[in-house]
Design a protein around this nucleic acid. Structure first.
Length: 240
DNA sequence: CCCTGATTCGC
DNA sequence: GCGAATCAGG
């Protein structure tokens, strides 16, 4: 089977779409996944989460690291149990409200604490900041050339607190309230104060409500009959 | 084992 | 240029 322009075009598209080489091979027909990979490389289609290369790059970025980029975030020393950072919509039961520390130099702070206040709890130096980045078609994270530092986003130090019954959680669906009639779509993140589940009535036969089903089940179809979705602008594949 | 992509190398 | 064989990680 020869690589016609048409087939090459299709390969390009599917590859960039994130299809695996074997899927593409199956889709094209008449070629092995090796053929697909080989061709893809010859076409200079690259970047894909390869298990091998990923490890190599990780090791490379970790070991020498002659990176001019200041990557100071020294491991947050003692795990100072930071109070739950989430600014509760309701006034927290006790404790002085700890606002997000203004970007002031913390070193030259003589810490003039109002009398009677508890010792100042230094917030963790690394503010958990969910970095927004684009995800490539293969599901890998894009990174800019100078950004290869810290390939593994260090888990922000986070103290897990037992879910405490509070006013603002009263109407939220907790883990313990899950059953097969209510939507199990998680909202927020486990460990966070207001983590809960959707809790709406499920779309019968599914673990989620209708809305979340539409989010959860838009993924790929079983492989074989996966022809229709991509609106092929150029006539589409030949009917065999 | 299965899967993945990368690489090699004879054709 | 092609792709089977091989490698190596998940």
């Amino acid at each position: 089977m020869a690589w016609t322009d048409e087939r090459i075009e299709q390969l390009r598209k599917l590859w960039e779409q994130g299809m695996t080489a074997s899927q593409i091979a199956e889709e094209l027909g008449g070629v092995s996944r090796n053929a697909v990979i080989g061709k893809a490389h010859r076409l200079n289609l690259q970047s894909r989460p390869s298990p091998v290369k990923a490890a190599e790059q990780a090791a490379e970025a970790a070991a020498p690291a002659p990176e001019p980029t200041p990557a100071p975030p020294a491991p947050p020393p003692p795990v100072v149990a930071a109070p739950v950072e989430r600014p509760a919509p309701v006034a927290p039961p006790v404790a002085a409200p700890i606002e997000r520390p203004a970007p002031v130099e913390r070193a030259a702070e003589p810490s003039s604490v109002p009398t009677g206040a508890p010792a100042p709890i230094t917030p963790p130096t690394t503010t958990p900041q969910p970095m927004i980045r684009s995800i490539g078609p293969g599901g890998f994270q894009r990174q800019t050339p100078g950004e290869q530092q810290s390939p593994i986003p260090p888990a922000p130090p986070r103290r897990l607190v037992p879910a405490k019954p509070s006013a603002d959680m009263a109407d939220k669906t907790s883990l313990l309230e899950l059953n097969d009639r209510i939507c199990k779509w998680p909202l927020g993140h486990p460990g966070e104060a207001d983590f809960h589940f959707c809790g709406n009535p499920v779309n019968p036969g599914f673990p989620y409500c209708l809305d979340h089903c539409s989010v959860a089940y838009q993924a790929q179809l079983p492989r074989r009959d996966r022809r229709p979705p991509p609106p092929l602008p150029f006539g589409g594949p030949r009917v065999r």
